[in-house]
Amino acid sequence: MLEKLTKWKSAMTSEQKSKDIDDINVPKHIAIIMDGNGRWAKQKGLPRVAGHHEGMKVINKVVRKADELGVEILTLYAFSTENWKRPKTEVDYLLRLPERFLNKELPTLMEKNVKVRLMGSVDGLPDHTKKAVLKAVEDTEANTGLVLNFALNYGSRFELITAVKEIAKQVEEGVISATEVDESVLTSHLMTAELRDPDLLIRTSGELRLSNFMLWQLAYSEFWFTDVLWPDFNEQHLVEAIAVYQKRARRYGGV
C-alpha cells in the first residue's frame, strides 16, 4: 500500500511540474550525457555493471516523457570512443545493453512512432550490437515522431577529424574550393548533418565537462548539470531541466 501511495505521489508531482512548462518553448533537441552508473553501484555495494543495468531502465522513462512533452530529438551518449579503455568485462556488458534495450523496447518505439538513429562508428562494434542497432534504425526509418539518436562508439574529435578529411578530399578533387569551406559546409559533413543542434544539454552525476561530446553542435546550447546519478534520474528531473531552460534568454552572442 505504501509503495502504491509513493508511486501515486510521484506521478502527481511529475504531472504538476509538467503543467509548469510552457508548451511552446520546449527544447526541440535535448542531448544527455548519462553519467554516474558506476558510482551509483558503488554506493550500494554492487558491481559497476549493476549500475549500467539500472541506467538502461531509465532510458525508457525519459524517452516516454520527452515524447509526451513534445521534444523532437533526444540524443543519448551511450558509449564513447574513450569507453574502450574500461575493463573488458565492463565494455562487453555495456555493448550488450543496446541489444537488450532495443529487443525489449522496439515494439513500443514502433507503436509510439519513434525513429531510432545512430551517431557514431559501427566499426569495431560487436556483431550483436551492430545488428540490433542497425535493425532498429531500419525498422523505424519511416517513423515520423521523436528521433531517438544514440551516440554509440562516438567521439566528437573523431567526428570533426573525419569531417575535415572528407572536405579536404573534396577540395583536392575540385568539388569545392578552399574558400567555399564555411560553417555550413563543415556542419553538412558531421554525423548530425540531418539534425538541428541541441537546444539543451543535460549531464547527470555532478560532473561539469563535455567529455568529447558534440563539441561543435553544443556551441550555443544551454547546459543543465545535476548531482543526480543517472540510475536515479527520472521524469521529474527532465521536467525540472526544461523548466530551467525556459527561464533563460538565448542570445547567441547578441544582446
Rank of each mutant, 00 (worst) to 15 (best):
P47E: 10
H52A: 09
F233D: 10
L160V: 11
G36W: 07
Y154Q: 08
D23K: 08
H52F: 08
A249V: 04
E172S: 15
W40N: 12
P126W: 06
R96G: 15
I59R: 09
E207Y: 01
V26R: 01
L102K: 00
D92R: 13
L208S: 04
A249G: 03
E159I: 07
R64P: 01
A249M: 02
L148V: 12
R39M: 05
P47T: 09
L102Q: 05
Q170A: 13
K7I: 14
L215R: 04
I33Y: 08
K19T: 04
G124E: 04
V147H: 09
E54H: 14
D20Q: 14
T89E: 15
T129E: 02
L210E: 05
A78Q: 08
Q236S: 15
F233E: 04
D35W: 10
E90Q: 12
I21Q: 00
K19C: 04
K19S: 08
F150R: 03
E222D: 09
K247A: 00
E138D: 15
M56N: 12
N149T: 05
S211G: 01
L106C: 08
D67H: 07
Q43M: 12
A193F: 11
S211A: 08
W84G: 12
Q16E: 11
R100E: 14
E72Y: 00
R196L: 13
G145I: 00
E194W: 01
E180G: 10
H128Q: 09
V164H: 06
I176D: 02
I30D: 03
D22K: 01
S156P: 10
K104C: 04
A78R: 05
E82G: 03
I30P: 11
R86N: 04
K135D: 15
L74F: 04
A31L: 09
L69V: 07
V137R: 10
V122E: 07
L238A: 06
M110S: 13
R100H: 06
T140K: 05
R48E: 01
S188F: 04
N25S: 09
T81K: 11
Q43H: 11
Q236G: 14
R39G: 10
H29V: 07
L148C: 11
M214P: 03
K28D: 05
R209Q: 11
I21K: 01
N143A: 10
T162V: 04
I33P: 05
P231M: 02
I73P: 02
R48W: 03
E240V: 06
W216L: 07
H53M: 07
N103H: 09
L229Q: 12
V175G: 02
Q16P: 00
T187V: 02
N234H: 06
L160N: 01
N103Q: 12
S184G: 02
K7S: 14
L218D: 04
M56E: 14
R203S: 07
L76H: 11
I30C: 07
M34E: 08
L200M: 11
